[in-house]
Design a protein around this nucleic acid. Sequence first.
DNA 1: CATGAATGAGCGTTCATTCAT
DNA 2: GATGAATGAACGCTCATTCAT
Lengths: 216, 216, 216, 216
Amino acid sequence: MCPRDRAKRRTQERILDAAERVFAEKGYHQTLVDEIARTSRTSKGAVYFHFPSKEALFAALMDRLAARLLREVEGAIAAERGGVAKVRAALEAVTRRLARHRRLAKVLLVQSFSSPAFVRKRLEVLERFAGLVRAQLDDAIAEGSIAPVDTAVVAHAWLGAVHELVVRWLYTGEPPLERAVPELTALLLRSVGLEPASEPERPSSTKTREQKQGQS
Amino acid sequence: MCPRDRAKRRTQERILDAAERVFAEKGYHQTLVDEIARTSRTSKGAVYFHFPSKEALFAALMDRLAARLLREVEGAIAAERGGVAKVRAALEAVTRRLARHRRLAKVLLVQSFSSPAFVRKRLEVLERFAGLVRAQLDDAIAEGSIAPVDTAVVAHAWLGAVHELVVRWLYTGEPPLERAVPELTALLLRSVGLEPASEPERPSSTKTREQKQGQS
Amino acid sequence: MCPRDRAKRRTQERILDAAERVFAEKGYHQTLVDEIARTSRTSKGAVYFHFPSKEALFAALMDRLAARLLREVEGAIAAERGGVAKVRAALEAVTRRLARHRRLAKVLLVQSFSSPAFVRKRLEVLERFAGLVRAQLDDAIAEGSIAPVDTAVVAHAWLGAVHELVVRWLYTGEPPLERAVPELTALLLRSVGLEPASEPERPSSTKTREQKQGQS
Amino acid sequence: MCPRDRAKRRTQERILDAAERVFAEKGYHQTLVDEIARTSRTSKGAVYFHFPSKEALFAALMDRLAARLLREVEGAIAAERGGVAKVRAALEAVTRRLARHRRLAKVLLVQSFSSPAFVRKRLEVLERFAGLVRAQLDDAIAEGSIAPVDTAVVAHAWLGAVHELVVRWLYTGEPPLERAVPELTALLLRSVGLEPASEPERPSSTKTREQKQGQS
DNA sequence: CATGAATGAGCGTTCATTCAT
DNA sequence: GATGAATGAACGCTCATTCAT
């Protein structure tokens, strides 16, 4: 039965891949199950054999995308030492991946509002990411790197900021992420009192931060 | 014809009021034009007399809500003197109003993702708010209150942060806005290097910010 | 609003007429709502505007047909004097009308088994007819024309007998109703001890009954 | 190959058993081939290996059930001596078995109307039973026990009466068969001029028949 | 022989939109 | 201007049947 199972799994993946493509492109409501079937080169029956409904298919897709993104971010965090570095790494990992995978971003950040059921699921998904961020923040607070803050509020505020900038970039191309991400990273770090000193990508802009210190 | 025009306007308002209620409650796609007609105590024909389509009705509703919110925020800003105070006032005005008018928040922050057309409109609407914020930030930079930053990025990041926290609060009740708003305000001010000094509600946390400075 | 209502009613009737034709011809499950719409020269939307579902439409049709048949039978009964004559009149009215209106018969006697929900409705409909029959039988018993019997059992047994012979005739043409109905009427009357003497239509067959008397 | 054949036969029986259960419970159209496969603890493939289609499976089931019922009735008839006794025995055997096996009754009496194809098959099946009854009636007429009647009409009328009462009892529980069957038997016997003499349960009513004769 | 994943034609129902009154 | 009956294109979902393993 193992080869059978493998084939089954493969079909399911094909359907999810197709769903990702079509949902991202057309949006949840404009997407026809027929088109997912066609795109997946399977059949409508196969879609409904593997997923009980269009809604459930979308939810499964959200799960898959969130899990992948989460794994990526966890990897990025694990690769760094030190609270601040981890925070920065997480932020950069998320934005980088969302920027590279527009479909991921569209599904997770935009289509996830398509229906009340998804809004709640989106909150759950974001909660997982917020958990990661909070853990780093709590560590940083514990080690004295940053002053105590309500890390729940901070985490969600950060995610919202990322969300908004990515969505805007997705639809308007502005501001370009290469420019926005370092600025955003600096902004978020500053928001918890961290000096966004050694930015690898835009050392020039770092200077201006130092001036700002003298002002306050 | 003036009295007739007045009646016309009134019907239109009734429809918009009904649309606001129903769209906020059920979401764009779950809302039937029939239900808007019923709720507005007019008729389906009336709806289509005043608005060319369901989509246009929703767009008009977004405009009306955005205009009201914008007016509120402009008022709050105008009432203050000094860049920092204006920034703070704007933030508080937005969150306060969204919190008081859940329907406003649901339509503008959540339902506005319901269709690709609305996503773009939402970006335009947010752009207007971002414009307000940017203007204050630019003033603050000009007057030397804060260090130069990419105010476009900052403004959108801020709006995203507000968006996320309000949406989360709408659906889960957590974190309570009374707690989240001051924290968020402080966070955002800090993100541009401002000391969120005189917070009325959480003066204790202010102290810790000063310690943080010494760490970097 | 009266003309509007009249038009509405007319459309509803058109749909019921079409439904009667198509359901009788194709059976409930083979009938497409599309075809009812087409046959009624209205539209699928009209069908669903007037009836909440295909099932409800069928039920409404059963009601209409049953009401008509019932009215006919009540008329036939009212036209006669004397328990026995009324019983005979009722039997003949039912069979005559079912024979003349094959669609009525198909829908009420055959299609009414198409779905569990209809089976129950059919029982209710038959119950109404049984009620009529019982009333006559009870009268006949009261006036001493026939001996006491369980009129509920008798009524349903009679209806079953009629049902079976009409259905068989509908599908096979055998036995021809002109022959079967008098025989059946005699049979049923005899079953409650009545002498089916003066049959207007087949006086010849009456003779054989009289021979039978000598045997018992 | 004989043992293999035996296994094959056993699987077929399992499927028929399952089909009987499910068809009786849910009705033909509500029954999924999947569910028959599951209930039979075989597989969908097995069902289609043994029966060419769902429709054929149902037809085969009708055949099996009819054959069993027919055998029972034939046995009951054979066990009796004398036309009248045989007639009575047949009636009682049919009703008794239908009452004891509700699934048999539901499939044969109700589901058999589910589709035009089945209606015809049902007519054939009933024809076989009618043949049995007719044979007894013809014998009774030949031996002079009853007066000559159109035995085809009588047989089908009787079956219809039984059908209706059993179906009603199946769905409503009323009238209870213990009460209805003797009454029905007496009724049917009377319908051909037989005195339903030795009824165990309602001996009183027998007398009244004789009075009735004098009325006509 | 058995299995169950895959197929796809088919259908009931929805609902934004129109227009005669 | 207002009404609501009528329209019909659109779509999610079902399920009998097939066939590769």
